[in-house]
Write a protein that binds this DNA or RNA. Structure first.
Lengths: 151, 151
DNA sequence: GAATATATACGACAATTGTAGAACACGTCA
DNA sequence: TGACGTGTTCTACAATTGTCGTATATATTC
């Protein structure tokens, strides 16, 4: 496997574009996640806005965030709308697609890509709060109807 | 945040040791996952065994795998049992802990650490089969009881 | 126009992760 | 003992990601 092939695969794995019925998904790094969460909420917004939003939880230098965001533009995760000297960023990937990417990556690594072993894992090894359980019950009752519809 | 602090936090995040009732979990890279899956299945085993097992899916050079495994020893994920000149590796982390680490990382990044939005996401965006929905229901029905026990 | 504030561009370094070949060491066999 | 096979050690490079200060550019105000 040559470097360029691997590079191409690596890219495809990060952002899998729509091919027929296949869905969009993206894989973000830790820092990218933090930044995208702010962008999804405040877009279009400047890098400075993102920095201000993250100053408490992360305390990153402005240039740290700007660099990361510029790289995300190169990767196709963000786009720049220019107004005079100001760059406003907006997302090119949806939160749903990013979530899907992260979820699928986890599923593939830890559960060979299958939901059933993950569910078993949750059942046997993960507990949840009462509140979460109540909310889940509500969603599950809807799930019955939705899944019938889907399949 | 100084470099050494960040380094310490980074380590703690990768392997969170047992503190009281808190659980074990680990975070593995892509290559580490591939290797651990083989080790869990064949341990104790030599690096060459791992390389042979992965030759079809990955075609990594022996030294690629050996290097990764040596680094994993340094990280505490693997341990070496020496028999003459031969090193047999066995895992220091369980598959459950690794799964938990990967799952929790995903949950934190994509769903702010909460199960409920993840389940909602699955139901609304991922499409689940009847069987999976049934497992979800089982999880929810057990959730009430288990969480009492765990918490 | 100068001073100031804001924002971008530039450049660089460190750590981690992935990748792997070459050199060296050990064990076995003829 | 030398040859050969197996396994470890050593070394190194590349890419990515994280991190950030400095230089430069732009816009505004006095």
């Amino acid at each position: 496997m040559s470097k360029s092939q691997e590079e191409k695969q690596s890219r495809d794995r990060k952002v899998v574009v729509k091919r027929g019925a296949q869905e969009n998904r993206a894989e973000l790094t830790e820092a990218e996640w933090e930044i995208m969460k702010v962008v999804w909420e405040k877009q279009p917004c400047a890098a400075g806005t993102v920095q201000e939003a993250l100053v408490k939880s992360k305390n990153w230098a402005y240039s740290t965030i700007k660099t990361t965001m510029d790289r995300m533009v190169e990767k196709g995760f963000l786009e720049i709308e220019r107004i005079r000297n100001l760059q406003l960023f907006h997302s090119s990937i949806s939160e749903v697609d990013a979530r899907r990417g992260e979820f699928r990556k986890m599923l593939k690594r830890a559960f060979n890509g299958a939901l059933t072993p993950m569910m078993q894992f949750l059942i046997e090894h993960e507990g949840i709060s009462k509140r979460e359980a109540a909310q889940l019950r509500e969603f599950v009752s809807r799930a019955g109807k939705k899944s019938e519809g889907k399949k």
